[in-house]
Design a protein around this nucleic acid. Structure first.
Length: 926
RNA sequence: GCUCGAGUGGUGGAACUGGUAGACACGCAAGACUUAAAAUCUUGUGUCCAUUAGGACGUGCGGGUUCAAGUCCCGCCUCGAGUACCA
């Protein structure tokens, strides 16, 4: 029989499905005496374009590892699902009127077909879809838990809001340390006297998800607000539309409450330094002090500084142009100049302001602050290098210790005091924290680090301010003015929000006539009639929907218990499956999904619903697969297409050609003519051989570059096993690499060669039951060791090479030994599950190879009688000399020195030194 | 600018703790089978010199440590990713 991959793959895919071969066993069943292993791939958003070859890369790696763990005797959870709420389906709905649920369903079906063809070991009975009401019921439920919780900084954990109310009733809020919005102090008696509405407003300041007027990133083109991580380079990540700042009443998540733990617990996870760094920078912790400067005008200015040790170096103050105090402190004489400057900055977009870092600008207010320690008068300026949104929107400028302050002072001719001993600041500021402080009263002669501590102590003692830690991380806006997302379990009565009761959940998406905002600018859900809602209470329901990251922040928990109607996950199952052992996905989610998931996990942990506080124990980020675009060159003068070899003889423009028209850089001219109508009569200037050679470049895969390769076409042509092996063979998983179909033949040949090990010259299945040869055993055990080592360090590419080597060696040995080949099949099955399953059954096995046990490595088979020592002279390898492996250092030395080649290379010189590493190398120094 | 990662043949890439650089595969070349093509098989393939034997040079660049450096240390260059006036 020939290697008929199409038949084999269909056959076994059906078998696995029918036999539920990949079912994970839940706690309480027999399977759970085995250790558990939870391997997860980031679930996809099912887009209309379907999968291209880049998408399955991570899934394949994750699948191989999951299958490997199963062979090692683990109870494996390896699920897949869909992040099925999202903008593209809704944009499509706006254009065509087709309900996003229908679009999503269609895309999802296509994804499933594509995934099925690749032969993944997913337990499809556990599939989750974030847009499914039975799923988002629990997303709404978690939202409710967050609403009913506050963050107790003393206990350093989230607690029920009921506990907080008890404290308010007993002692007011004076002694509460909580992550909260600024709240007026009140006593127990005052609390009791507040109206219900007042009480609710105060509680809103403490809740972990809260409704507040906040400055948000409004994207007019998308008609919605966006979170910070959804904006790249000042424009929306999706679509690249401009974004502006707008004050809106929005739901937010108090992720800032967890800022410190989100940084600290990074030490406990096995992720790349790059992702950890990105998260650390995004959270942006800075330790320093908040200091209050009195002003002549009376109104004090609060600043935040990380260098309280440099407080005697302050030579001016800078407020953000938007700072509220600017109006009150500016003197009449400078009113016009300040107004002009404010206007000037307000006209700049956020993007311009960021882009133009070089130009120094600012304006003097005419007002003066007073130095808290010296009482000196300090000029107060405004400048756009101070941002309203960070810290207090005001800085104490220390030119000698901060480059921006230094440049500003230089530009406006402001005095630069030097408070660093023996440091030259004539050229630039000195920003290191290792100088000795001088000219600074009680801080003089202290090293900076000690001075910081003392300065904070003195500032607090004299009541000028306090030590403080600031974070760059902002609370995450949680409302979206869109249709295709989770509705909130919230209704309004007299303008106050209330939660929908648990037994009424989920609040499902109501039907609407159009997927656009209303005339008054309300979100699409405002179009729904009262009857269209399955739950309607109060005056109205919440019109916003949740953002894309809501559903993806906890989906890994739902896989553990996907059909539970009583809880988002049972405690028992969450305890058993616990953390995701290996998470594979793209690094682009560093500051979005990966941060939000950690936040929700910590919250659910605090509230006692789960017993672990980090979701993903180990993570690998697969690199992007880039496309290899092909180009044709059109002569600008004649319009003829010039072959790549001759293109420099003409002035040409470079145009993309569909990669499907090109084989090995040679263009199929006839197909090219038929490809696009405009090329129907194309003429060509060919190479000497009469062919047309295309140019190529590595670019991102995209439709417009005609360089998209879908897995389907490759599966059709070579089979899923070839595709799986080839994607792995391409290079290290984490590395970005260009896709090139050229090499796929080699991998396909390897599988055919592997198939032939089991067949005779006439392609009849034939294996021998004789005792295996020594050589074959050596090849097998060498391979077992390599494959296992490679898998343990996630080196999938080298494993494929090692399979090739083993196959080549066994072919050479003409080995068709049952014992050897059986074990080799088990080794290979994670990579090529179909062909191995087929051969396994042909060997007479009645049970699936997925139930087999990974072979055990036996080093005895690798023991050699001789080792070919590489003999080097002064580090240069000259020849190899086979010597018995049991030879000692001295014996090797003796044998090498007696060798005639050694004598030749010594050329009469006496060796100065001789290094012998037994079993490794000999080096002679002359 | 800062942070992280990476630079090895014509190409993708290998080389675990310093120990035979270029495994494996693609591509290319020659040959076998074939009327021919495809498929398959065999051989060769880092560069340069040499008919051979052999030799010199080679892991982005410049130094260093070492018997020995792709691997370790110092200084640079280039590319990629992230981030950007964060006080």
């Amino acid at each position: 029989m020939e290697y008929n991959f199409r038949e084999i793959e269909t056959k076994w895919q059906k078998y696995w499905l029918d036999h539920k071969s990949y079912q994970a066993e839940d706690p309480g069943t027999a399977g759970t005496v085995k250790p558990k292993y939870y391997g997860l791939s980031m679930f996809p958003y099912p887009s209309g374009a379907g999968l291209h070859v880049g998408h399955p890369l991570g899934y394949i790696a994750s699948d191989i590892y999951a299958r490997y763990k199963k062979l090692l005797g683990f109870n494996v959870l390896h699920p897949m699902g869909y992040d099925s709420f999202g903008l593209p389906a809704e944009q499509y709905a706006i254009q065509t009127g087709q309900h996003p649920a229908i679009t999503t369903e269609q895309n999802l079906k296509r994804y499933r077909e594509q995934l099925d063809k690749i032969g993944f070991s997913f337990d499809w009975d556990r599939e989750v879809r974030t847009s499914d009401p039975s799923y988002y019921k629990w997303t709404q439920w978690i939202f409710k838990q967050l609403y009913n919780a506050w963050y107790n900084q003393t206990a350093n954990k989230a607690q029920s809001i009921d506990d907080l109310m008890v404290i308010f009733e007993n002692e007011g809020n004076a002694d509460i340390k909580a992550a909260s919005a600024p709240t007026e102090l009140f006593s127990a008696a005052e609390w009791k006297a507040f109206s219900e509405k007042e009480k609710q407003a105060i509680l809103m300041n403490y809740r972990l998800t809260y409704l507040a007027d906040s400055w948000v990133n409004w994207c007019p083109a998308l008609g919605t607000v966006l979170a910070n991580d959804e904006i790249k380079d000042g424009v929306s990540e999706r679509g690249g539309h401009p974004v502006e700042q707008k004050l809106m009443r929005q739901w937010s998540m108090r992720i800032t409450a967890y800022a410190d733990r989100l940084i600290q617990d990074l030490d406990a996870v096995d992720w790349t330094d790059s992702i950890k760094d990105q998260q650390r920078n995004w959270i942006g912790k800075s330790v320093g002090a908040s200091v209050v400067f009195k002003t002549e005008a009376g109104e004090p200015i609060e600043v935040f500084t990380t260098r309280p040790d440099t407080i005697f170096g302050v030579s001016f103050m800078v407020l953000a142009p938007e700072h509220p105090l600017v109006e009150t402190i500016t003197t009449d004489k400078f009113k016009d100049a300040i107004a002009t400057y404010q206007k000037q900055t307000s006209l700049k977009t956020e993007r311009d302001r960021q882009a133009d870092v070089k130009t120094i600008s600012g304006a003097f207010t005419g007002a003066y602050a007073l130095h808290p320690f010296t009482g000196d008068k300090i000029e107060i300026w405004i400048a756009d290098y101070v941002l309203a949104g960070y810290g207090t929107g005001a800085v104490m400028a220390v030119p000698c210790g901060d480059q921006r302050d230094y440049d500003f002072a230089g530009h406006f001719g402001i005095e630069i005091k030097n408070i660093f001993k023996d440091v030259d600041i004539s050229e630039q500021a000195y920003t290191e924290k290792d100088a000795i402080i001088t000219n600074s009263d009680f801080l003089t002669d202290l090293p900076a680090k000690k001075a910081i501590k003392l300065a904070v102590f003195e500032i607090e003692k004299r009541g000028f301010g306090k030590g403080q830690t600031n974070f760059r991380l902002r609370d995450a806006v949680f409302s979206r003015q869109r249709y295709w997302g989770e509705p909130f379990p919230v209704y309004y009565k007299d303008g106050t929000p209330y939660l929908v009761a648990d037994d009424q959940l989920p609040v499902t998406l109501p039907e609407v006539d159009k997927y656009l905002p209303t005339e008054d600018g309300e979100p699409p859900l405002a179009r729904a009639t009262k009857d269209a809602w399955n739950v309607f209470e109060g005056d109205r329901m919440e019109y916003n929907t949740m953002p894309g990251w809501a559903g993806s922040s906890w989906y890994f928990l739902r896989y553990m218990d996907p059909h539970n109607e009583e809880a988002f996950v049972s405690k028992e199952k969450a305890d058993y499956w616990n953390q995701v052992d290996l998470y594979i996905g793209g690094s682009e989610h560093a500051t979005g999904h990966l941060l939000y998931s950690r936040f929700w996990t910590k919250f659910l942990f605090d509230m006692g619903f789960i017993s672990f506080n980090e979701p993903f124990k180990k993570m690998i980020n697969q690199g992007m697969i880039l496309g290899r675009s092909s180009f044709v060159y059109r002569d600008k003068a004649s319009g003829k297409f010039v072959t790549a070899e001759k293109r420099h003889e003409f002035e040409t423009s470079q145009l993309h050609a569909d990669i499907h028209l090109v084989d090995n850089d040679k263009l199929d001219i006839e197909a090219f003519k038929k490809w696009l109508p405009e090329y129907k009569d194309a003429e060509f200037i060919l190479s000497e051989e009469g062919t047309y050679t295309c140019g190529h470049e590595v670019e991102k895969m995209s439709k417009s570059k005609y360089n998209v390769q879908t897995p389907d076409e490759l599966v059709e042509k070579f089979g899923a096993d070839t595709l799986r092996c080839y994607e792995m063979f391409l290079g290290p998983l984490e590395q970005a690499k260009p896709w090139d179909t050229k090499g796929i033949n080699g991998v396909h040949n390897f599988l055919r060669k592997f198939w032939r090990l089991f067949h005779d010259a006439e392609n009849n299945f034939e294996v021998s039951d004789a005792a295996p040869s020594k050589e074959a055993l050596k090849t097998l055990h060498k391979t077992i060791k390599k494959i296992q080592d490679d898998l343990e360090r996630f080196s999938f590419n080298t494993a494929v090479s090692n399979f090739m080597i083993a196959t080549n060696e066994l072919t050479e040995q003409k080995c068709n030994n049952r014992a050897i080949l059986s074990e080799l099949l088990i080794l290979l099955t994670p990579y090529a599950p179909h062909i191995t399953e087929e051969l396994w059954s042909q060997l007479g096995n009645t049970e699936s190879i997925t139930k087999a046990t990974f072979p055990t490595f036996n080093p005895d088979y690798l023991i050699e009688a001789e080792f070919a020592y590489p003999v080097s002279f002064n580090g240069k390898m000259r020849f190899t000399l086979p010597l018995p492996t049991e030879f000692t250092k001295e014996e090797v030395e003796k044998a090498v020195l007696a060798n005639e080649q050694t004598i030749k290379y010594l050329d009469g010189n006496a060796p100065k030194k001789m290094i012998v590493v037994p079993g490794r190398i000999v080096n002679i120094v002359i």
